[in-house]
Amino acid sequence: MIEIKRGMTLDAESDGSVREDGSMYSYESMQSLTQYLLDRTKHRPSVGVICGSGMGGLADMLEDNESFAYNEIPGFPTSTVAGHKGRLVFGILNGVPTVCMQGRFHVYEGYSLWKCAMPVRVMKLIGVKTLIVTNAAGGLNSDFRAGDIMIIKDHINFPGFAGDNPLRGRNDERWGPRFPAINNAYDLKLRKIAREIAEDLGFGEHITEGVYAMVGGPCYETVSELRALKILGADAVGMSTAHEVIAAKHCGLRVFGLSLITNECVMEYDVERSANHAEVLETSNRRKADLEKLITNLVARIQE
């Protein structure tokens, strides 16, 4: 097993040489990184949560928590986006051992997709069985309003159309098969349970279900791009999530995903209104209490 030290990169062969394609990392180095964390926390989580823009407050709800700044974890990237604190937080959420990524990594920050998805594999080795992914997204569906919560039933991975995929490169069967199936990536049973929880909590009218489209960013989409996405069947669009879900399904995790619709996409030409990140954070802050209740209750149901 390779010993991971602070500042060491993870795109190296077992003999220390760098892989030519730079797109993968060894199973052994992931084991060492995982052991580094397990040696420093008493928690053994079964649920992992990736907190999207403005949703990091969920990690602060973990009881008896132990947190690690990304820049202190050997081999981890660092988050550079407002609304992403950049911590891995272990603790207890509604009685369930849980680990939260308080902030994620994006391709537009300069990271490869495999590196953006790397923490999912760390969660797998830690012992996580179910991954919950959250994001802030623009609404393409004309029935959606800012503040709605969209349960993700499927995604369109546009970076994948261009050949950029977190599984690109040599496959290690210890993670999963060379050609994993990604249909039914978002667990049907968990989607139904989430709807039941929202109804019980009194905000079922704000729950929708749809298809999430991932684009590269960091610029928001043009009117023509948004219209094309809508024609292709997308209900919401954002700059994350699909690669994390692909990595999770590849290594056998159950997945639940939701998008907070933070703005209605500008679908008409020659209008003054435009998308902006401040609007994303403001909407996230307005609906964070409902999101936290939904996920907290869902985690307990997962354990059952």
Rank of each mutant, 00 (worst) to 15 (best):
C100F: 13
C100G: 02
P119R: 11
W114A: 15
L113F: 05
F105W: 06
C116R: 13
K129V: 05
Q102K: 06
K124L: 02
T130V: 15
G110V: 10
V128M: 13
T134G: 02
Y111D: 04
R121T: 12
T130K: 14
A117P: 01
V122K: 05
M101Q: 11
P119D: 12
C116P: 08
L125A: 05
T130D: 08
T134D: 01
M118T: 02
V107E: 11
T130N: 14
I132P: 01
Y111G: 01
I126E: 01
Y111F: 13
G110L: 14
Y108V: 09
L125M: 14
S112T: 12
K115N: 08
M123K: 13
I126K: 07
T134H: 02
V107S: 14
G110E: 08
Y111N: 03
G127F: 02
Y108L: 08
L131M: 15
L113Y: 07
W114E: 00
K129C: 00
S112I: 03
L131S: 14
I126L: 15
I126T: 06
L113A: 10
K129D: 14
P119W: 13
E109C: 06
F105K: 05
M123Q: 14
H106V: 06
G127D: 11
M118L: 11
G127E: 12
V122P: 02
K115W: 12
M123T: 09
K115A: 04
W114C: 15
M101E: 05
L113G: 00
T130A: 13
M101V: 06
M118P: 00
W114M: 00
T130P: 11
P119S: 10
V107G: 03
M123P: 07
G103Y: 04
Q102E: 07
P119K: 10
M118Y: 05
S112N: 09
C100W: 13
T134S: 15
Y111I: 05
M123Y: 15
V133T: 15
W114G: 01
V122C: 07
F105M: 03
S112C: 06
R121E: 10
V128D: 11
V122S: 04
P119H: 11
Q102M: 07
K124H: 05
L131V: 04
H106A: 10
T130G: 14
S112D: 09
C100V: 03
L113R: 04
I126M: 15
L131Q: 14
M101A: 09
V122W: 03
Y111W: 09
Q102S: 06
V128Y: 09
R104D: 09
K115V: 08
L131C: 14
L125Y: 06
M123W: 13
C116T: 15
S112P: 01
M101R: 06
M118H: 05
G110R: 14
V120I: 15
L131R: 15
T130L: 14
K129G: 01
E109Q: 10
E109A: 07
S112L: 13
L125R: 09
L131A: 14
K129W: 00
Y111M: 05
G103T: 04
G110N: 10
T134V: 15
Y108M: 08
V128E: 07
R104N: 08
H106P: 05
M101P: 01
